[in-house]
């Protein structure tokens, strides 16, 4: 017993060093597992508040850019208005529905909620975006996030109060949860990032023989409840053949500019809980 105490006293510094390092590695491993935020809510709240103060100043100088971006988004939406299209049936008449029930509401599967980006990074190996807004309360962990021009940004990992921490597409991903579809060919693969350039992603698991050309758009697949179908992820840059498998490895450049994010929209799926429940039931039957 005495020897143990002597040992501890002798190597106390080394033991503290090893313990602290082990704790750090534990934090790294624990946090990186998706959706398992071991990080305290207080830390998020404090850094969120400081980030917001800083962003208030910076935002003033980026107003012009934000304006241009909003203009573009608006133009896109105006073009989608029903008034811009002539219906093929020339004999139609407009009739006003007299029933005062919003019949669209029950078919709504996704809701979009705007939030302001207060902090953003692109240089680390796992990059996070922090968004702030009163709408955050309608969103849940695991919901998808897009930017003003309908391009995918990432997935919410953590919500505290009015702040949401978003894991951007730019993170090392062993178990990527974002699937994407080649818009023209229709093949579905998974998105990952190699940790080097902030605007280059990789699309995996596309079988060889699929017709892919440089410039093809890659969109969300709609196969999960995270994102609706058809949101832009990026455009094909280069196609490589993987020697060891029957798949292509496709390099994309992202549709979203991760270095200048101003506003984002969180997408909350109304069916997420239902789907989750169903999958759980199906798994239980196995």
């Amino acid at each position: 017993m005495r020897n143990i105490f002597l040992f501890i006293r002798r190597y106390f510094n080394l033991l503290v060093f090893i313990l602290l390092q082990a704790f750090c590695v534990f934090l790294i491993v624990q946090y990186n597992r998706f959706h398992q935020a071991a990080f305290g809510a207080t830390a998020n709240r404090i850094t969120g508040a400081i980030n917001q103060r800083y962003d208030d100043v910076g935002y003033y100088f980026r107003l012009k850019k934000a304006n241009d971006s909003l203009l573009k988004a608006n133009e896109f939406l105006y073009n989608k208005l029903k008034e811009n299209y002539t219906l093929p049936d020339s004999g139609y008449k407009t009739k006003i529905d007299s029933i005062r029930v919003d019949s669209i509401l029950q078919f709504r599967t996704y809701g979009y909620y705007a939030a302001k980006v207060v902090s953003n990074s692109v240089t680390s190996q796992n990059n996070f975006v922090v968004a702030y807004g009163p709408n955050i309360k309608y969103l849940n962990e695991g919901d998808g996030v897009i930017n003003m021009n309908n391009a995918v940004i990432g997935i919410i990992t953590n919500i505290t109060g009015d702040y949401a921490v978003i894991l951007s597409l730019l993170h090392e991903s062993k178990e990527s949860t974002i699937t994407a579809r080649l818009f023209k060919a229709g093949e579905v693969g998974t998105i990952s990032w190699d940790g080097k350039q902030p605007n280059v992603l990789t699309l995996n698991n596309i079988p060889k023989g699929t017709k892919v050309v440089k410039g093809d758009s890659v969109v969300t697949s709609g196969l999960s409840t995270t994102f609706p179908k058809g949101l832009l992820v990026g455009y094909v840059d280069e196609v490589y053949e993987e020697k060891s498998s029957s798949n292509y490895k496709i390099k994309l450049h992202t549709a979203a500019d991760f270095t200048s994010l101003e506003f984002v929209y969180g997408i909350s799926s109304k069916h997420a809980d239902e789907v989750k429940e169903l999958v759980k039931k199906a798994k239980a039957k196995l």
Binding site: F12, N13, V16, F17, L20, Q21, C24, V25, F26, L27, I28, Y31, A38, F39, A43, N44, I46, T47, I50, N51, S119, S121, S124, N126, F128, V130, N158, V165
Partner: peptide, 30 residues
Amino acid sequence: RTPLMLVAFLLGFSIDSFRHNPGFHAAACV
């Protein structure tokens, strides 16, 4: 050495909190 390491851990952890990636800078500082 022990208080030195604890202060270093605190410093690294503060940086980590802003980057939402706990552990990395703390480990390097320690």
